[in-house]
Simulated assay, not measured.
Amino acid sequence: MLLLAKLTALLFTASLFLGAAHADEASLRKTIETTYPKVSIDSIKKTTYGGLYEVFLNGQIVYTDEKFSFMIAEGRLIDPKSKRDVTSERMEELTRVDFSSLPLEQAIKVVKGNGSRKVVVFSDPDCPFCKRLEQNELSAINDVTIYTFLYPLEQLHPDASNKSKAIWCAPDRARAWNDWIFNNQLPKTSASCDTPIAKVADLARKLNVSSTPTLVFANGKRMLGAYPAKDIEQAMNEAQNSKK
């Protein structure tokens, strides 16, 4: 009976603690939304560091206290004992993509070798870093299926949308994409068709993809920029091994 009473007391105390934690998070959410009504808050989580709360909003992590009396933005939380970049680890976790849900039929498909590994690339035809990624890095990788979502950033490259349409409407999209990337040549015959460019833009906004190139691997991890081939290879292998 005494043991049962102790267990009951412990469970009651734990439930009070969890209830208070959720109440603090709900109160903090309300305070932030009142201060910044246009901000979309995805999650709030109390950290184990000095009473800080991690707030994931608008695709970024900020830190604050329970009263929102300050906000740390664009900073890194580092664990001094392990030297871990806690912010980077959490960002990787919070921004993972459900690869299986991606509408791959709206992407240009290029198969190299046995195509066993998979990667998605959001790419702008007029983005110099996208061309660098294709020419210097992806060209050196074999046994991969690359799905390229054409994502023209018109505010930066006004003609990128027209180029995207021309490439998508070509009889052989994969060849047209490679001709543009490696030879700077667009399809010679004009063609018109329904394109998924607007849908891809909606998808990119939903996933908080705001720059090109952005790579997404089969395990949902994303990579921003024209990373070296060895880093891309490592990420693809990790994604493939995590599925085994």
Score class of each variant (00 low, 15 high):
188 K>N: 07
134 E>M: 13
94 L>D: 01
127 C>R: 03
123 S>V: 00
40 S>W: 03
31 T>I: 11
233 E>T: 10
211 S>A: 15
134 E>D: 15
192 S>T: 15
175 R>I: 01
182 F>P: 10
70 F>M: 02
195 T>D: 01
121 V>H: 07
169 C>K: 02
146 I>D: 02
31 T>R: 12
224 L>Y: 00
200 V>I: 15
45 K>N: 10
200 V>R: 00
117 R>Q: 14
34 T>D: 00
68 F>M: 14
9 A>N: 09
71 M>S: 14
219 N>H: 04
9 A>C: 05
83 K>G: 04
103 P>Y: 15
204 A>S: 13
36 Y>C: 00
193 C>K: 11
142 N>F: 10
140 A>L: 11
215 L>R: 10
148 T>W: 05
188 K>D: 09
25 E>Q: 11
96 R>D: 01
26 A>G: 01
110 V>L: 09
97 V>N: 04
89 E>L: 10
125 P>E: 05
77 L>D: 13
205 R>M: 03
215 L>I: 15
221 K>V: 14
20 A>Y: 06
7 L>R: 15
222 R>M: 11
30 K>Y: 13
14 A>R: 02
70 F>I: 06
119 V>R: 04
240 Q>S: 10
4 L>S: 11
211 S>F: 01
146 I>H: 03
105 E>S: 10
191 A>M: 08
147 Y>Q: 09
69 S>P: 04
99 F>S: 14
202 D>E: 15
24 D>P: 04
153 L>G: 05
63 Y>L: 07
180 W>T: 01
110 V>G: 00
44 I>T: 02
37 P>A: 02
144 V>F: 04
203 L>Y: 06
191 A>S: 12
177 W>L: 15
183 N>Y: 07
83 K>S: 12
54 E>H: 13
128 P>H: 04
239 A>N: 03
160 A>M: 00
81 K>Y: 10
165 K>S: 07
